[in-house]
């Protein structure tokens, strides 16, 4: 069985994003980029399934600029077997990514596609669901546990109020939540070795996908600055203050 893991190159989670002065977006010039953390969890899960003998090949896929190669190398260093870069400098919305992935799934026929539940840059939380819909396949989203049993996969989901387990017939789509696993690091020696692993380069046109955006960004702005706090001497004063502010 093959597993496809889409990975996205995003602004590093440690970086404090700065909005461009004209309000058209986040300034990415000279900003540290790395793999979307939920995607790292997806790669890790795929590797663990392979290590457990449930999968034979892991294919990492990224849609993005040439630099997204580095993100794919990271996936390869962690343990993916080969990679496909669908290169474009344009901003790609979840629907376009899902269409490209649909085309790749058609070529590769994976038993599972494991995606991060969302990317930390746009927080869309859409690609996995859209892909499942386009393919007409079952989806297990927000997975905190993935267990393959024969032709089906049991996915434990983190939902409001607890855990829900669903069983999906494979091929299926899974999206990862934070607690699914703790991903390994891509070590420098492994990054060097990963340079020998195959990395195919494609473009959206190769898959006949129109990636023109359907949404228009009106304005991007910084969150409001925190106002000065006040200190209260004790709990009574705190309660009084909250009442005064109409909060309690």
């Amino acid at each position: 069985m093959k597993i496809i893991v889409p990975v996205k190159r995003v602004i590093d989670y440690n970086v404090k994003p700065r909005v461009k002065s004209d309000g058209t977006g986040v300034d990415l010039a000279n900003v540290k980029m790395s793999m979307n953390p939920f995607d790292e969890i997806a790669v890790e899960e795929a590797i663990r399934l392979k290590e457990a003998g449930k999968a034979e090949e892991i294919i990492a896929v990224s849609v993005g600029p040439a630099k997204a190669q580095e993100t794919l190398r990271t996936a390869l260093a962690m343990g993916a077997d080969r990679a496909i870069l669908v290169e474009t400098d344009a901003e790609v919305e979840p629907l376009a990514v899902a269409k490209i992935l649909k085309a790749i799934v058609a070529e590769e026929n994976p038993g599972l596609v494991i995606l991060g539940k969302q990317a930390i840059d746009d927080d869309s939380n859409q690609t996995g669901q859209m892909l499942a819909a386009l393919l007409g396949r079952p989806q297990g989203t927000f997975a905190s546990k993935v267990e393959i049993d024969g032709d089906s996969v049991a996915v434990t989901r983190e939902v409001d109020g607890g855990l829900e387990t669903v069983r999906l017939a494979m091929p299926a789509i899974v999206t990862t939540d934070l607690r699914l696993n703790e991903p390994r690091y891509a070590s420098l020696p492994n990054i060097m070795k990963a340079k020998k692993k195959p990395l195919d380069s494609k473009t959206p046109a190769d898959f006949g996908v129109d990636i023109a955006p359907r949404l228009k960004t009106l304005k991007v702005s910084e969150p409001p600055v925190r106002q000065a706090g006040i200190k209260v001497p004790d709990v009574d004063a705190l309660v009084a203050k909250l009442k005064e502010m109409g909060v309690a």
């Binding site: 900003v31 540290k32 690091y185 891509a186 070590s187 420098l188």
Partner: peptide
């Protein structure tokens, strides 16, 4: 974390041979 030109690699014990191969 603010320096895009510095890559951090964890879990990366480097032997002399690996250093030689690291370009």
């Amino acid at each position: 974390h603010q320096l895009a030109n510095v890559e951090i690699y964890m879990d990366s014990h480097m032997s002399a041979d690996e250093i030689l191969g690291a370009e």
